[in-house]
């Protein structure tokens, strides 16, 4: 939050200003099994992040003007992508190639493997490396989160024209933001990262479902509801 409102584009500044303050993990102490403890801590953090994301989405310019059905569809399709932009952004430059889920929940490869998240670790490090090589800024991360939600390919849409206008507004904001920094090509490069983001989010969703079904990791009702919509 060091560069609050530093964009010349009002939408991008607004997205960054309304970005929730990063959450801290609440360490689970209900079990002696350390890998299960990690998973329970992670799922609790994810659930709270999801709540904040829903609150934040309502503040994305144009989102609240969409029909309630479309708001729900976009969030149900794009929530994991939006949350993973945050994880990848926080994990840039992390020591020992850790994944920074929160300042007090940073998992390295061995910890992820022990928790049954080896696949997810690999996918998220790949995504992080992509953004790291671009030196993704806080403004860009906030804009990308909004774009990921708007572009989540929910189907069918209640009012496709309104969703397209919503997408166009965010696309223009990102273009203008980069143009004002004389970085015209970055908007395109950021959009080209969306397929990798989608792929990573799919793997994360499958990992969560697997943990829930095979290891009986309990999930909060909201998370279950969002997974059910997938």
């Amino acid at each position: 939050h060091a560069s609050l409102g530093s964009s010349r584009n009002k939408v991008v500044s607004h997205l960054l200003l309304t970005e929730p303050v990063p959450l801290a993990a609440n360490q689970d102490d209900s079990t002696n099994d350390s890998s299960l403890r990690t998973l329970l801590t992670l799922c609790d953090l994810l659930n709270r992040e999801l709540l904040l994301l829903i609150g934040w989405a309502k503040q994305i310019p144009g989102f609240s003007g969409l029909s309630l059905v479309d708001q729900m569809s976009l969030l149900q399709s794009g929530w994991m992508e939006a949350l993973l932009v945050g994880v990848a952004w926080r994990s840039q430059g992390a020591s020992r190639e850790e994944l920074v889920f929160a300042s007090n929940l940073q998992l390295d490869e061995a910890e992820c493997r022990a928790a049954g998240l080896a696949d997810l670790y690999e996918a998220l490090r790949h995504l992080t490396a992509r953004y790291e090589s671009m030196k993704l800024s806080a403004e860009e991360a906030a804009a990308l989160k909004a774009v990921a939600l708007a572009n989540s390919d929910a189907d069918p849409l209640d009012c496709p024209d309104a969703v397209h206008r919503f997408q166009d507004g965010l696309h223009e904001a990102l273009q203008e933001h980069e143009a004002s920094r004389r970085e015209q090509r970055r908007a395109g490069r950021l959009l080209m990262s969306l397929p990798l983001l989608r792929q990573t989010a799919d793997r994360a969703v499958h990992a969560l479902l697997r943990l829930h079904r095979q290891r009986r990791v309990p999930l909060h009702k909201l998370l279950l509801e969002m997974l059910d919509a997938k």
């Binding site: 709270r48 709540l51 904040l52 829903i54 309502k58 609240s64 309630l68 729900m72 909201l222 969002m226």
Partner: peptide, 20 residues
Amino acid sequence: KEKHKILHRLLQNSTSPVEL
């Protein structure tokens, strides 16, 4: 929609902040 009532409620509740 009935199946996704938590999300529905969170989105409808537009005036008050999302409660944790």
